[in-house]
Design a protein around this nucleic acid. Structure first.
Lengths: 189, 189
DNA sequence: TCCTTTGCAATGCAACTGCATTGCAAAGGA
DNA sequence: TCCTTTGCAATGCAGTTGCATTGCAAAGGA
């Protein structure tokens, strides 16, 4: 077995380049040659690691999901043991909002993929799972009689805040104020 | 002055075709020839009415905004005079959710434009105005001490519900349940 | 040592892109 | 009647796209 190369590493290297291109110029600017140039490799190498463009896109989508997963996990980890429910909720949701430049870039890519999957339902399955899982988790932390609907609403609020943050409609302060107001409402009883 | 033709009508005809293409295959499938074919006209004619593709995109974006504006106005119009605030809010927001097939198609286009403008900040100005106007209007209808933040949150919730409806994460029933639960919270006091 | 497997670069190709250009028919005004 | 303006179709062009193909160097196992 010749020339051992870390396949996974190469693929993530390329996917990172893809995300840089997509964050700056949108998914429609993502082409084999463009991504290759951004990654500083040859177009042939991209083809070597992804047989088709769709395969590359799917991999990049998985990376986006992964990053969000990591963000949430780390944010929770930074809290001590047994944090109060409200703080835990705020931390998780804030971790998913595009508040700094890095998460804004990721958010732009995620938004592009949302539009992308809205037209290719085949690729949307995993996003659906993520959402359902989050709703379930949030519901477990909420008080009140209407946990399921409240949790679905809270997650939708997060998504909307993210969209408006990316679009420049809301500032970070506005978004966080809206989040806190929402938590005030949910924990009022 | 020869051959009188309704310019505006031709342009909306073409923009409608563009939206059909974008709703089915995404904005990246929108090309002069593709749109022309969908409109049943020649590519030359599209060029005649839109000097550049960007001009055509801008026009289509304006059509999307317009349709939403009309939806809200009509929904409000269907209510009698002086409807209670909560009903008015629910009606307005529900009118903006992609609940039937037509508004789903429009929603897919709108979502594509959100991603599009997130990368081309120049084209996002009007969207920003729309949002600000909506927040102001919603705030005027809400009770409670935190109207601005509550209104921003409510609008974000609407946007997020829209995104999840398009992505198949939420059913229409779930989305409406979340909306009603939110209104329950806001009008609890 | 040979030889197979792998990693990668280069090239080619047909299809497509946005846009400029050209040509022409029809509709009026002069 | 002529002639200018307009609406539109057709063609051409340079650039880009995804992908297939080809060639070759390096790395090990036999």
């Amino acid at each position: 077995m010749p020339k051992k190369v870390d396949h996974q590493a190469r693929r993530t290297l390329i996917a990172d380049a893809l995300m840089r291109v997509a964050a700056e110029q949108g998914l429609e600017a993502v082409s084999l040659r463009h991504v290759a140039a951004a990654a500083g490799v040859s177009a042939g190498m991209v083809q070597h690691y992804f047989r088709t463009k769709d395969e590359m896109m799917a991999f990049a989508l998985a990376v986006v999901r992964d990053r969000n997963q990591v963000r949430v996990t780390e944010a929770i980890g930074r809290l001590g043991d047994d944090p109060p429910a409200r703080l835990l909720l705020r931390t998780m949701i804030a971790a998913l909002l595009p508040l700094d430049e890095q998460s804004r870039a990721d958010g732009r890519v995620a938004l592009a993929f949302l539009a992308y999957t809205a037209v290719r339902p085949a690729a949307a399955g995993e996003l659906r799972d993520d959402t359902a899982q989050m709703v379930g988790f949030l519901a477990g932390l909420l008080p009140g009689p209407d946990r399921a609907a409240d949790a679905a609403g809270l997650l939708a609020l997060m998504e909307g805040l993210g969209v408006y943050l990316l679009g420049g409609q809301y500032t970070a302060e506005q978004a966080l104020a809206a989040l806190d107001a929402q938590l005030d409402l949910l924990f009022a009883g």
